[in-house]
Design a protein around this nucleic acid. Structure first.
Lengths: 160, 160
DNA sequence: CTTAGATATTTTATGTTTGAAATAATTTAA
DNA sequence: TTAAATTATTTCAAACATAAAATATCTAAG
């Protein structure tokens, strides 16, 4: 075996460990935070995390979003979105409208109630995140966020 | 308002944005990776991600784990573990044993089939992670993993 | 115009997940 | 020892999630 081959093998081995470790840490961190936010949303506002996520997405888009846009943005399946929107509609927080001449699509947007409802929850949500991520200084947070940006640019669009 | 009060307010506002942004990036990154791993496990080995996670946990503990240990380690609810272990048991990949004098507990461990089965999947899994995280050099990965360590030490044990 | 293909959404079947309540077994304290 | 509290797990109902198939609509080639 040549020196460069040994080098390659050693590098690969190092990669293996450090990247796998990174992934496990990333997963643990996000599960821990997600679990805590889920719990607080439930006890404080009696809302589930997926519902909050949908409302957050719609809040950013006053014109509304297509089902397929929601699905891609939230990275969940199409059928999943249908069920979530059904339930949110039943509860009067969201509504489907037909706006284009395209009868295949339905534009989803927050109702007035949903809008007001969300603004309250969003304020708490923001505070909780600051609390839960208080280990990171603003600078650290900024740097870390930039580091994780690669995923957004890289795969975000890829179909599932 | 005093200068220091203004300062505080400005700092808080910065925190707000950077930490929330960090959380959203963290969440997107882990969802993207998780989704890709889920897909590959399904198409390649016809196994779901939660099942893989359970088997990975058990693989690390040849002596087996209690249901409650699994629940805490994987950060999922108790009832969830019961269902997963039920199905894995049906498929012959996992078995429950009664080992202590405590008849409340059941020690879960991989069967021989489950063990062999997992080793194959784990190798692919490791490769996939290296591919998906190839944007990070080993050093970057190491550093990032250390940065995210705080969560492990901080909350990991907290009850849900 | 008609139909083949593409697109958007819903439906279906199965599996995962949660939180709460129920069950069962152990431990502690009176 | 016995009752109360604690611990470990399971059961349950509802919500969430996925992938694949079905439905409905639109677009475009001929």
């Amino acid at each position: 075996m040549t020196a460069s081959q040994e080098m390659l093998k050693a590098d690969r081995a190092t990669d293996d460990k450090s990247r796998v470790r990174l992934w496990l840490r990333l997963l643990r961190a996000s599960r821990a935070i997600e679990g805590e936010l889920r719990e607080r949303l439930r006890t404080t506002y009696n809302v589930t995390l997926p519902r909050f996520d949908v409302m957050a997405a719609l809040y950013r888009e006053p014109e509304g979003m297509l089902m397929s846009q929601l699905s891609k943005y939230l990275m969940v399946s199409n059928g999943n979105v249908t069920g979530l929107i059904d339930r949110l509609t039943t509860d009067g927080l969201v509504q489907r409208t037909l706006r284009d001449g395209d009868r295949r699509t339905s534009v989803v947007l927050l109702t007035k109630e949903g809008h007001e409802n969300f603004e309250q929850m969003a304020a708490s949500h923001r505070e909780w995140i600051n609390e839960l991520l208080s280990h990171f200084s603003p600078d650290e947070a900024e740097t870390l966020a930039d580091t994780l940006k690669v995923f957004a640019s890289d795969w975000e669009g890829e179909p599932r």
